[in-house]
Design a protein around this nucleic acid. Structure first.
Lengths: 147, 147
DNA sequence: ATCTAAATAAGAATAATTACCATCTAATAA
DNA sequence: TTATTAGATGGTAATTATTCTTATTTAGAT
């Protein structure tokens, strides 16, 4: 068995554990949607996920994908990426990371920036409380488009 | 005459100069839309602008507001704010600044962070070129919602 | 004042997302 | 294992944001 399958199994076990601990049912649809999200690490739209899941579950409805993704987001299993074009995109990477967005093709790439993560926000925002997200978006031209 | 009117006059003159230099016509609609944007510094949606302009130009069409805002954006007169909720929002502040977003009421507030602006992105993104935007979004609870 | 390309209004079309409700099913307990 | 039931789903309609189309209007040049 190759590594990707071992990881997949581990991820699916963690997924089921999370759902159970939240009192959420483990349905065929949720399982397939989660698998699709693992497979699509390139910030898919809801439509992308829908099409992927349909390959294995032909009766899946788009609304279920919307609802399920919202549920996953609510329980921290995925992150909603601030809209870049017109469709919302999602990210299985829930660790602290940032985004590169290609001005040309709208591709989104994750990157890490520990030096930034360690910075304290300026005192001018002290009137805001519960700062739980500090996210950087950098726009430029990706290596593909530069060619 | 109070200061706000002096500033308004200056801004409108700058606006007309910009349009002329780009070969764009100075229409009644564009003028009213620009005035509405000056008035609405709280990151309005297209619909917000439309409603404001309608007070003075009852025949304005929503499509004109969309088109005009796109034109203004193209020529650097306003900035598009990365979607936070479902509607796109705009910002008359085209200087280098960042956004605070309230997790509770979705209010967007501008802030400045020179220490961040001076930072060089991590070398892990060196394969991207033409980095022209480096923007931070901080999420928290605004002073109003904290009360 | 006239002309013409650019801009607009009105409404239709499209795209993304959400709401509704009848039906189905996962999880629990008998 | 089966019955029960609240939670989840499918299909479709509705809503919301945005863009397109086309006939008409108008800003700015002549």
């Amino acid at each position: 068995m190759d590594n990707s399958k071992i990881n997949m199994t581990q991820m699916m076990e963690a997924f089921e554990k999370t759902l159970k601990s939240k009192g959420l049912r483990i349905t065929h649809q949720r399982t397939e949607i989660f698998k699709a999200l693992i497979k699509h690490t390139d910030h898919p739209t809801t439509e992308n996920v829908f099409n992927q899941v349909r390959k294995h579950l032909k009766s899946i409805s788009l609304d279920t994908v919307y609802r399920t993704i919202a549920t996953f987001e609510e329980y921290g299993l995925i992150k909603r990426v601030h809209h870049i074009d017109n469709a919302t995109r999602f990210d299985m990477n829930v660790s602290n990371h940032h985004h590169l967005v290609c001005s040309n093709c709208n591709k989104i790439e994750d990157f890490y920036w520990p030096d930034f993560d360690r910075m304290k926000p300026p005192s001018s925002i002290d009137h805001w409380s519960d700062v739980e997200v500090k996210h950087v978006v950098i726009k430029g031209i990706c290596s593909n488009c530069r060619k």
